[in-house]
Each structure stands twice: as C-alpha cells, then as structure tokens.
C-alpha cells in the first residue's frame, strides 16, 4: 500500500463563489474520508480567492490550498494545471476530484497525463467497495451505466454536477498558501480579454431547473414564453437540436447528445418530441415535465408529468400560476 492519503478536491470557482459541483464533491469526499483515511482538502485557484476558503471549510474541507495569484485570475489551462499539480504534490492524496466542466476536463486530463495516472471521466457515483474506489459513469447519453475502477495509488476523476447532494459540515480549515513556479510552456498562452456577455445567466450544467424549447416553439420569438417561465422558476433555458439547428438558439443552449448533458432536479420540455438524441442529454434529470401537442410524442414515454396541449397556452398559464404561488402563498 502506498502512503498516499486523503481526498483533494480541485475547486471550480463560479461567479465569486465555489461552484455547486465543488461543494457536492467536498460533501461526498467527507463521507468517504473515514473509510479511505486521511483528510479532505481543497485547492482554490484564482486571484483574490482567499475568502472562498471559508466556503470550502463550511462543507467540510479540513485543509484549503490557496493558489492566489494574479496570473491565474482567469482560467488558463497550463497555469491551472501547474497549480493543481503543485497542490496534488503538497497534499499527496489518494483521490483527486475535478468537476466535469470545460475547465475541469482540461485540468484533470493534463494532470493525469503529467502524473501518469488513470482518469475517470464524468462520474455520477463514487463508493468504496472492499477498500477499492468504484465510480459510476453513465455512458452513451445515460442509456448505460458503467461501473469503473482505476488502477494505481493515485486516482483522478471528474464529477458531473448535481450527482451528489451537498450539505454543510463546518470545520476549521487549515489554509495553506501555495506559490507555484509556472512552467515556461504553461506561460506561453496569454489572456488578452475577458468578455462577460451573459452575466447573471444560469449555466445549464449547474442549473437545478431547466426549461427547454424544441421544434414546437416555432421560431426564435417563440422562446419568449420559455424564457418567462424560466425566469419565475429561477431556471436556465435550454433548447433541443431542432431549435438550435433551425438557428433559433445558440448551440450553447443545446441539450442533447451533441449539446450539453444535464442532470437538473427538474427539466421542463416544451414542444420537444424527445428523440434519442435529446433524451441522451437530459434523461438523468430527477423529474421531467413535458408539454407537447402531439399525444404520441416519445417524450411522454419517459416524462413524469405530461401535458398534451399547445405550449403557447399552457406555458404562459403555468408562468402565471407559479408567479401567483410564489408571491401569493
């Protein structure tokens, strides 16, 4: 057995807070720690992120590595990898958890390649079985659930958002500032501009509720009713491939096999027939509500609650009803 011990969570920093997936990973790490042994630690990479250590501690991270450096104010794959590797070397854990996101994948893959470890990608479950870590990974759009194991004394994994519950368990964390010697190769790419066009937008992967529109929405202007419902629910807006291919929504909104894979608590599909393609991206949602005028649309075969009706009548009424309940009740 090696002397590597504990779990390190490489934090994802959202808009001035730790992303939910990071808090979920810390929570899950905390649950596994007694059996695995060793501490739960987190590394936060960014500029002016010292205050976020408290948030990690609130969920149970006993040690927080801080790479607080203006050079990593904005994500840059090489520099973040250097920082994460420095934290891994400092913590010497048996398990490193990243998030399944664009940034998380880049850093996880580079860390695994640099350190020569295995990488479990996009896991939704993690448990110890006879002392071995077993990860659950839904593949092919969630139609299959694979159980996977990584060999070696250091295991890395990226965790899909919303896979684990998150709960607070405040501890007093030891803060360990790390200063990183960035490699010359990592310093080659330079950030020249940061543009935030969609400030305040809820990202699809992080959203707990998603309201999506498909072919039945009929056009870009039809998305207005979808957006209004999303607003009262505090939900993110999604779209099916048909709506994106028709040019009604940017592909960043696309949910499905060739778009984003989401697992929200609630997925409201409006005017979406529910092709395999779309299903692949959303079938791990906790609850699915479907509104479609075609009673035979496949979406009704896997929706928890289906309404056969015109979305342009049902959705505005639903928006009104929820607004009434939220403000009135």
């Amino acid at each position: 057995m090696s002397d590597k011990k504990g779990i390190l969570v490489v934090a994802e920093v959202g808009q001035d807070r730790l992303a939910n997936v990071t808090l979920e990973s810390i929570t899950r790490a905390r649950e596994l720690a007694p059996e695995m042994g060793g501490p739960v630690s987190a590394v936060i990479i960014g500029s002016g992120v010292a205050a976020l250590g408290a948030q990690a501690a609130a969920y149970g991270a006993e040690r927080v590595y801080l790479v607080d450096d203006p050079q990593v104010a904005t994500f840059q794959s090489g520099l973040f990898t250097d920082a994460a590797v420095a934290a891994i070397k400092a913590a010497d854990p048996a398990l490193v958890l990243f998030s399944t996101s664009a940034d998380g994948r880049d850093v996880a893959a580079a860390c695994a390649a640099r350190l020569g470890t295995g990488l479990l990608v996009d896991i939704t479950g993690l448990e110890l079985r006879d002392g071995n870590l077993v990860a659950t990974h839904p593949c092919f759009g969630g139609s299959l659930i694979a159980e996977k194991q990584a060999s070696g004394d250091l295991v890395m994994a990226t965790v899909r958002p919303s896979s684990f519950a998150r709960s607070e368990a405040p501890v007093t964390a030891e803060t360990v500032p790390l200063s990183v010697d960035f490699s010359p190769t990592s310093l080659l790419a330079k950030v020249t501009d940061v543009v935030c066009e969609n400030l305040g937008l809820i990202s699809l992967e992080e959203a707990t509720i998603i309201v999506s529109g498909g072919r039945g929405v009929g056009g870009p202007e039809g998305f207005k009713v979808i957006e209004e419902l999303a607003e009262v629910l505090g939900a993110a807006v999604g779209a099916s491939r048909a709506a994106v291919d028709a040019g009604w929504k940017h592909h960043q909104y696309q949910v499905g096999q060739t778009g984003k894979t989401v697992s929200p608590q609630l997925y409201i599909a409006c005017g979406i027939s529910g092709s395999i393609q779309h299903r692949a991206g959303m079938q791990t949602s906790r609850y699915i509500v479907a509104i479609n005028k075609d009673p035979d649309a496949p979406i009704f075969q896997f929706a928890d609650f289906g309404v056969v009706g015109d979305l342009f009548e049902v959705v505005p009424r639903l928006t009104e009803e929820i607004r009434r309940r939220k403000t009135g009740a």
Binding site: G142, I145, E147, K148, Q301, V307
Partner: peptide, 21 residues
C-alpha cells in the same frame, strides 16, 4: 488504467401522469 467492472442498462424511465390540456 481505468477498467469497466460492469455495465448495465439504465433503469428505463417510465411514463408518469399524462393529461390532456
């Protein structure tokens, strides 16, 4: 370095309530 232990078909989602508007 990673291996598949087993794979199973995801429990099929089933249709819930369906109503006409």
């Amino acid at each position: 370095k990673t291996k598949v232990l087993s794979a199973r078909t995801a429990p099929p989602r089933t249709a819930g309530t369906k109503i006409e508007d």
